[in-house]
């Protein structure tokens, strides 16, 4: 493989790592707000890295630009989506989990 291809694979693999962190976080963390952390941060970075890999990998003329647009779109909308859900949860009066009730909660 050429150095470029190594770079692509490395980007994609690191992206996959953060995607995995997001998935584990979604399952392990105790409440909606902490889960939103995992969903917004780790998944966004995972997406950005993986899409950067795609942008480098794709050969057809202007498709790179399409991948970059997809990347920017995800970058802009993912945190907003997490905010929207967390805001709805707060509005509905769901209290954040605190370290004190560590024993009580599953």
């Amino acid at each position: 493989m050429t150095p470029l291809e190594w770079a692509i694979v490395a980007l994609a693999a690191v992206g996959a790592f953060f995607g995995g962190v997001a998935a584990v976080g979604i399952v392990r963390l105790p409440d909606i707000y902490t889960r939103a952390h995992a969903a917004s941060k780790s998944d966004t970075l995972g997406a950005v890295l993986a899409l950067a890999a795609v942008a480098l990998a794709i050969q057809t003329d202007l498709s790179t630009i399409k991948a970059v647009f997809l990347l920017l779109f995800m970058f802009l909308t993912n945190p907003t989506a997490a905010h929207a859900i967390a805001r709805a949860a707060e509005d509905q009066g769901i209290r954040p989990w605190a370290a004190e009730n560590r024993e009580g909660d599953p």
């Binding site: 998935a23 979604i26 969903a39 995972g46 997406a47 993986a50 997809l70 995800m74 997490a82 859900i85």
Partner: peptide, 12 residues
């Protein structure tokens, strides 16, 4: 929020 993550992963 989990569906959102599933969706993001699908896009990727």
């Amino acid at each position: 929020i989990a569906v959102n993550v599933v969706g993001t992963n699908t896009v990727i």
